[in-house]
């Protein structure tokens, strides 16, 4: 899902090469993003099913994202050195590099969830906590929306993602309270409860990283940073 520049806007051979390379960077980013989204989905399914076997699958898939990130770094460095982009091209390359780093971190958090799932599966099951599932659905939706906004340079959707992060934070606090109450009631819930707290911390970080990507979309499209600004402050 890339947005190639129309041929009418490619006047020179050199520029076509730059455009082709930008297209390639976009494709790689979307490939990474798709893999990371799938990884989070896999990790959350594994958690819901208490399926420890998913852990290995998630870790293996994360290696693919890591490899893409390394390749992305090399390509971006080469592009900066050879094409010296400015203006919109420069912002695109800058955002691509940052988003690729964020996506790689999302993969790592999915791996952390998968590892915690493996440990959770060896303990007595906690009562079902709906908020954990809702949190997983919420960060997956945020991730999908952030990536969609990146593809379409849709700042309205990007701002919705930024706003949605508050709900994730609220859910994390709720899960904390619920898990702690279980742990106080039943000592056997202490170990799985601690692991569940790790899971929601990782989910919250995924939400933060999706928010970073959404904020970068606004920077890409409008050239202004909305990081660390409250939405009511004109952001």
């Amino acid at each position: 899902m890339t947005q190639p520049i129309p041929p009418s806007q490619r006047p020179t051979l050199l520029q076509s090469r730059a455009d082709a390379e930008l297209d390639r960077l976009r494709e790689m980013l979307l490939e990474m993003a798709g893999q990371a989204e799938e990884l989070v989905r896999l990790a959350m399914t594994g958690l819901a099913d208490r399926d420890a076997s998913r852990s290995k699958q998630v870790r293996r898939a994360d290696d693919g994202i890591d490899a893409l990130e390394v390749e992305m770094d090399e390509r971006v460095l080469e592009f900066l050195a050879l094409q010296r982009p400015v203006a919109g091209d420069l912002r695109l390359v800058f955002v691509t590099l940052k988003a690729s780093n964020d996506i790689e971190r999302i993969g790592d958090h999915a791996v952390n969830i998968a590892k915690a799932t493996k440990r959770i599966a060896s303990h007595p099951p906690l009562p079902d906590i709906l908020e954990v599932r809702e949190m997983g659905d919420q960060v997956l939706a945020m991730l999908g929306d952030a990536l969609g906004a990146l593809v379409n340079r849709d700042t309205a959707v990007a701002r919705q993602v930024v706003a949605a992060d508050e709900r994730v934070d609220d859910l994390r606090r709720s899960v904390f309270r619920i898990v702690v109450s279980y742990m106080l009631e039943q000592p056997r819930y202490i170990s799985p409860g601690l692991e569940m707290i790790l899971v929601v911390q990782n989910l919250e970080r995924i939400g933060d990283l999706a928010t970073n990507i959404a904020e970068d979309v606004v920077f890409l499209a409008e050239g202004k940073s909305i990081k660390h600004a409250k939405l009511g402050d004109g952001a």
Binding site: I5, S8, P11, L14, Q15, A87, L90, R91, G223
Partner: peptide
């Protein structure tokens, strides 16, 4: 000007696009 030009003509010139 080099990171976020206001005018599309500037953007076109800086990025080398017609």
């Amino acid at each position: 000007l080099f990171t976020n030009p206001r005018d599309p003509r500037t953007e076109s010139y800086l990025t080398g696009r017609a």
